[in-house]
Structures are given as C-alpha cells and as structure tokens.
Amino acid sequence: MEVRTIKVFTTVDNINLHTQVVDMSMTYGQQFGPTYLDGADVTKIKPHNSHEGKTFYVLPNDDTLRVEAFEYYHTTDPSFLGRYMSALNHTKKWKYPQVNGLTSIKWADNNCYLATALLTLQQIELKFNPPALQDAYYRARAGEAANFCALILAYCNKTVGELGDVRETMSYLFQHANLDSCKRVLNVVCKTCGQQQTTLKGVEAVMYMGTLSYEQFKKGVQIPCTCGKQATKYLVQQESPFVMMSAPPAQYELKHGTFTCASEYTGNYQCGHYKHITSKETLYCIDGALLTKSSEYKGPITDVFYKENSYTTTIK
C-alpha cells in the first residue's frame, strides 16, 4: 500500500517557510505537534488534498525554529505562539472599519479597549522592536488589523473576551517599542525636605499616572512627601515624541487643539466601556464603527496623549 502524501510549508514567522512532505494517514499533531492554519487549530486533523502548498504555523520545537521565533517575536515564552494563534482565530472574524481616516474595530468580545489602543497607536510616533509587531502594525494602518490585535493580546497575556485596560495595554506595548531616546527629568520640591531631581528613561519617561493635564504637570502637581507634608512635583525636561497622561476616570474637559487623542471610560472596574476622542479640525468621538463630532467635550476621561518633541522648564 502506497503512502499518500502532500507537500506543505511549516513556519513560526510566515517569513521562513520549511518544506514538509506530510503523510495523509496521520494527523498534523502526530507529525508536527500543535499546528495552526489561519489561526485555526488543526492539530487533530489529517492532511487533505486542499492543504497542498498551504502554510501551517507550528510551535518552535527545534533550534532553527526557536531562533526564527525569537528573532521575529522577541520572546522565548513557549506558550506565546499558541496564544497568538488562538487569538487570531477570533480577531480574523472582527470587522476593521476605516473611521475618520483611522483603522478602528467594530465592537465584539469586549474589544473596546483594543480599538482605543489601536486608534491611539496610529496617532503617536512609535516604532516597535519585534519585527512581528512592526509588520502587523503597518498592515493594521492599511486596514488589516487582525494579526496586530492578536499579537497585542498575546504580548499582554490576554484572551479574547476578557476586559482590558488601555493604560495597561499601552504599557505592555511600550515595553516592546523603541523608547531608548526618551528621557524625563522631574523635580520634587518640599518646604521641609528641599528639592530632589529624578531622571527617568524609556517607558517611565512617557507615562504618568495622577493627572490628565500635561500643562498642569509642567506647572506642578501636589504629591505627598515622605515627611508627610505636601510637596510639588513638576516637569523639568521632556525628550520624547509623545507623552501619555493618565488618571482614574473623572469628568474632564478636553479643549480642541490642546491634545492629540484621549480615552474615555464609562462604567466601573468590573464592567465598563471605552471610547476614543481625537482632536482634528474639530473633536471626534470614535466608538467602534461609530463616529460623532463636537466642538467641545466633557466626560469621564482616563488617558490623554500629547505630541511632544523637546521641553525644558522655565521655572527657576
């Protein structure tokens, strides 16, 4: 009895394709271990004539594949690729409408935090270190965002349907971005203890939790000093293409032309909904596939993004 075979390709990165001759009487799992086709788990399936010449994702289970996976995804987590594939199996079914010149995501599976993050990423200057993220990001900007969303979920250790947080998501993504040249110098002034300067680099240099107003941050924000008295913390120097200011959701007025974009969060910790506000020729609110415009805006804002380049204080 002759062994019926077909020729397929296996890959971990969709760049390096490895030619395989597979036995049609055995499952993919018996031949390769966990195997995925377009995100779908085909591990328990036997090869079919229609699979001839198709590319299958496999887990990096030998040295060659491990090197290829690390170079593309910059992670050695053995569960990463499987999590990416199972997320992709959902995100490829989502709709990605162009809204006001940006790629958004039609609401499904509690994905409003991903839509808000995706919209924000198209408006701030950011370059990702893992080629996987950078490639998928370019495709997302062009309207094909399924891979990018699935990668975000995998890097953030999230599953489809789980509630997510924009600030946490951005923080994970910033860790995989090139923020080497970003720098922030802060000064804390206390009447009792004097003053202390701190220099922050990388992710810490672009994120701040405690106030939404970048102007206020430049002037000074009140913080408790270690001595128990009130101290003032203010920005001395900022070198970065953008800054992200966050605070627990509270009524906040966004003035046209003073910011790049913002995240609105309605609801409580267990259950809520994100919308995205962007400042173009007027203010726009993007909620999944829905767009509304207004000249002014007041609502429960939790993150505001500002364009920056270089700032030095005039406070002496």
Rank of each mutant, 00 (worst) to 15 (best):
V8G: 06
T11D: 05
D77E: 12
T76W: 09
T43L: 07
L37V: 14
Y73P: 05
L179V: 05
Q222D: 06
M24E: 11
Q134E: 08
Y297V: 05
N178G: 08
L163R: 14
L121H: 04
V243Y: 01
S263W: 01
V188G: 04
V203L: 10
T64P: 13
M24H: 09
Y274M: 00
N14E: 15
K233M: 13
F56T: 05
C182E: 02
V185T: 12
T116H: 05
H48E: 15
P300C: 14
G101C: 06
I152Q: 03
N129T: 09
A142K: 11
S240I: 00
H51I: 05
L119F: 02
T120M: 06
Y208D: 06
G202H: 05
G299W: 00
S86K: 12
V185H: 04
C190H: 02
F242V: 01
K183Q: 07
H48Y: 15
I223D: 12
G143L: 04
N100Y: 10
A247N: 08
V189S: 14
V236N: 04
Q175E: 10
V189F: 11
C182I: 00
D41T: 12
L81M: 10
T91R: 04
T159F: 10
A145F: 02
D165A: 05
Y36L: 06
I105D: 02
E239V: 14
V188L: 11
A262M: 01
T258Q: 12
A247M: 07
E204Q: 15
T312H: 09
W107Y: 07
Q123C: 06
A154M: 02
N157M: 08
N100G: 07
A289F: 05
C225K: 00
A40L: 13
L59W: 15
Q251R: 11
S213L: 02
V3N: 14
G53F: 11
T35F: 06
S213K: 02
I277Q: 03
F148T: 03
M85Y: 15
L173F: 01
K275L: 04
H90N: 07
K275T: 09
Q31K: 13
D180M: 12
E264K: 01
T278M: 15
L59S: 14
N61Y: 10
Y265S: 01
C285I: 11
V236P: 00
N187E: 15
G228L: 02
P241C: 06
Q237N: 10
F9T: 09
S79W: 12
Q196G: 07
E296C: 12
Q31A: 10
N157A: 07
D135M: 12
R141Y: 07
T169C: 11
Q216V: 09
K7E: 08
Y155Q: 01
Q230V: 12
V189R: 14
H276C: 08
K275R: 13
L133R: 01
Y84F: 13
T5E: 10
T5A: 13
P130Q: 03
A117C: 09
D165E: 08
L119I: 03
A262I: 00
K293W: 09
V67A: 13
L283F: 10
T169P: 01
L65A: 12
R141H: 09
A146Y: 07
E239M: 13
H90F: 10
Q270M: 08
K158D: 01
Q251N: 07
V166C: 06
T76G: 10
T266V: 14
A136R: 03
S279L: 00
P248M: 09
N61T: 14
T169E: 00
V185M: 06
G53W: 11
A69T: 13
N100I: 07
G39M: 10
A146N: 03
T159G: 13
Y73M: 04
V67E: 15
A132G: 11
V203C: 11
L254Q: 03
L65E: 08
R184T: 02
L121P: 03
T313S: 13
F242N: 03
T278P: 00
D180N: 06
K92H: 07
F70C: 09
G299P: 00
V3A: 13
S25P: 06
K54R: 13
T27C: 10
L59R: 10
Y172V: 11
P78Y: 11
G143N: 05
A40G: 14
P131K: 09
D13L: 04
Q270K: 14
P78R: 15
G202M: 00
T278V: 09
T282V: 11
E52K: 10
A177Q: 03
